[in-house]
């Protein structure tokens, strides 16, 4: 097996995540799909790091994880505050600018 299969897997996971972001309505699930896309990118970075034999790819994957953590904290806070004001976590309901 060639490590390029890891890249195919990463592409597949990224595609599934992207489709999920477009298809799902629940804001939390949309967020999870974004996480899935970030994870797929990390897998691609780690695989490229192995292919080229240097560690820079892993550093980038590490930074991606940190950014993902920050993004999740802020995003989930936004979802919770939207849920408090609208009593719904559906992204369709947040179509109005004001309540």
């Amino acid at each position: 097996m060639n490590p390029v299969y890891y890249l195919y897997l990463a592409a597949l996971l990224f595609t599934i995540g992207a489709a999920g972001v477009l298809i799902r309505r629940n804001a939390i699930v949309v967020f999870m799909c974004v996480e899935l896309m970030l994870n797929a990118c990390n897998l691609a970075f780690v695989t490229f790091s192995r292919m080229h034999g240097n560690l820079d790819g892993q550093i980038i994957a590490f930074f991606t994880m940190v950014v993902a953590a920050a993004e999740v904290v802020v995003g989930l806070a936004i979802i919770v505050s939207v849920f408090r004001s609208r009593h719904s976590a559906s992204v369709d309901d947040a179509s109005l600018m004001k309540l």
């Binding site: 490590p3 195919y8 597949l12 192995r50 080229h52």
Partner: peptide
């Protein structure tokens, strides 16, 4: 779903076209 499928096909075809046959290992 259609857009996702097309995107996936493009992405995987792109990886398939790149010459990534050998790897160095860490």
């Amino acid at each position: 779903a259609g857009c996702g499928l097309g995107f996936g096909v493009l992405l995987i075809a792109g990886i398939g076209n790149a010459s990534l046959n050998s790897f160095n290992g860490l």
